[in-house]
Simulated assay, not measured.
Amino acid sequence: MPKISDDRKLERSRQILDAARRCFAEKGFHRASMSDVIKESGLSAGAVYSYYSSKEELIAAVARSMFVAYEAGIHSFDDPQAHPASPEAAVRALAERILLEIAPLTDGFRMVLTVWGEAANNPALRDTVRDIVRGLRGVFERVLTDWQAAGHTLPAEPVVLAQVMVSVMQGVVVQQGLVGDIEVEDYIDAFCAVLRGVGLGEPRP
């Protein structure tokens, strides 16, 4: 039997994940079955099970693949020299990268809500979501701490402000996933205007 190349393996894995994402978005984690995923993928049952041995493993893989944009955005701030000039700049950089990149991958954020709901009762998935949320908080907390050290006054402690800023970003995910009428760019602009209003951004000329 000829060996499958690494590129072909990666392509098949993505094919299965894309099929699973569509099934989970349509039916939810619990109603969607492995049979649904197999049919949607167009592959044989043996091929799918050779990559993912159970629905639980597939759920974890889908969740992880969804948050690649989040992780890339977070890690882009790991270099202290790359920190933005203000908390507002950090919000805009992360929001534009994360929110705008992840929306097309998650059916307008509906899959994000599905993952969050499942994470409440799935410890492994909860760990993944918790790492992402804490990573985002950490980015904002570092930027806020630097802003404060530069002589700016904060309306609250950096750790608390970071929690609030992440919550506002989560809010657009919830509203878009449930209602679907949010213009993400306008939301980001309004959020940044609020940050400037409380001294967390550079004043506009």
Results as ranks from 00 to 15, higher is better:
residue 68 V to T: 09
residue 22 R to E: 02
residue 180 G to T: 12
residue 115 V to R: 00
residue 123 P to A: 09
residue 92 R to L: 02
residue 105 L to I: 13
residue 194 V to C: 07
residue 60 A to F: 08
residue 108 G to M: 06
residue 201 G to D: 13
residue 123 P to I: 04
residue 82 A to P: 01
residue 105 L to T: 13
residue 124 A to I: 08
residue 68 V to Q: 11
residue 68 V to Y: 03
residue 93 A to I: 04
residue 97 R to W: 10
residue 97 R to A: 12
residue 57 E to Q: 14
residue 64 R to T: 15
residue 198 V to H: 00
residue 76 S to F: 01
residue 58 L to W: 04
residue 196 R to H: 06
residue 151 G to C: 07
residue 189 D to H: 06
residue 74 I to M: 05
residue 41 S to H: 09
residue 134 R to L: 10
residue 37 V to D: 06
residue 122 N to M: 05
residue 155 P to M: 03
residue 101 E to C: 05
residue 98 I to D: 10
residue 18 D to W: 02
residue 81 Q to A: 15
residue 110 R to E: 09
residue 201 G to K: 02
residue 115 V to K: 03
residue 186 D to M: 15
residue 86 S to C: 01
residue 168 V to D: 07
residue 64 R to V: 13
residue 141 E to L: 03
residue 73 G to Y: 13
residue 77 F to I: 00
residue 121 N to A: 09
residue 163 Q to F: 00
residue 163 Q to D: 04
residue 84 P to R: 01
residue 158 P to W: 00
residue 150 A to R: 14
residue 50 S to L: 10
residue 133 V to H: 13
residue 31 R to C: 03
residue 196 R to A: 10
residue 162 A to S: 02
residue 15 Q to E: 15
residue 125 L to Y: 08
residue 107 D to Y: 14
residue 24 F to C: 03
residue 153 T to H: 07
residue 118 E to F: 05
residue 141 E to N: 05
residue 160 V to T: 02
residue 53 S to G: 08
residue 154 L to H: 01
residue 134 R to K: 11
residue 130 R to A: 11
residue 37 V to A: 05
residue 157 E to Q: 03
residue 200 L to K: 07
residue 58 L to D: 00
residue 54 S to I: 13
residue 141 E to M: 01
residue 149 A to T: 04
residue 199 G to R: 07
residue 88 E to N: 03
residue 82 A to H: 04
residue 94 L to S: 05
residue 117 G to W: 00
residue 126 R to Q: 15
residue 93 A to F: 00
residue 192 C to L: 04
residue 191 F to W: 03
residue 177 G to Q: 12
residue 34 M to I: 13
residue 109 F to M: 11
residue 158 P to C: 02
residue 109 F to D: 07
residue 133 V to Y: 06
residue 11 E to V: 10
residue 12 R to Q: 15
residue 44 S to R: 07
residue 82 A to C: 04
residue 47 A to I: 13
residue 178 L to E: 05
residue 46 G to R: 15
residue 22 R to F: 06
residue 124 A to V: 08
residue 195 L to I: 03
residue 40 E to L: 07
residue 75 H to P: 00
residue 8 R to L: 13
residue 152 H to I: 14
residue 107 D to C: 06
residue 37 V to R: 02
residue 34 M to H: 00
residue 164 V to E: 07
residue 70 Y to M: 08
residue 99 L to R: 02
residue 45 A to C: 08
residue 172 V to M: 02
residue 105 L to P: 06
residue 51 Y to F: 07
residue 112 V to Y: 13
residue 34 M to E: 05
residue 33 S to M: 14
residue 113 L to R: 14
residue 27 K to F: 15
residue 110 R to L: 01
residue 19 A to I: 09
residue 161 L to V: 00
residue 184 V to I: 14
residue 10 L to N: 03
residue 5 S to C: 06
residue 174 V to P: 01
residue 132 I to T: 12
residue 108 G to P: 03
residue 137 R to D: 10
residue 87 P to R: 00
residue 117 G to F: 06
residue 203 P to C: 06
residue 122 N to Q: 13
residue 116 W to M: 13
residue 123 P to N: 05
residue 89 A to F: 01
residue 73 G to F: 12
residue 172 V to C: 04
residue 130 R to E: 15
residue 128 T to M: 15
residue 148 Q to W: 10
residue 159 V to T: 09
residue 53 S to E: 14
residue 186 D to R: 15
residue 162 A to Y: 01
residue 21 R to N: 06
residue 50 S to P: 04
residue 30 H to Y: 15
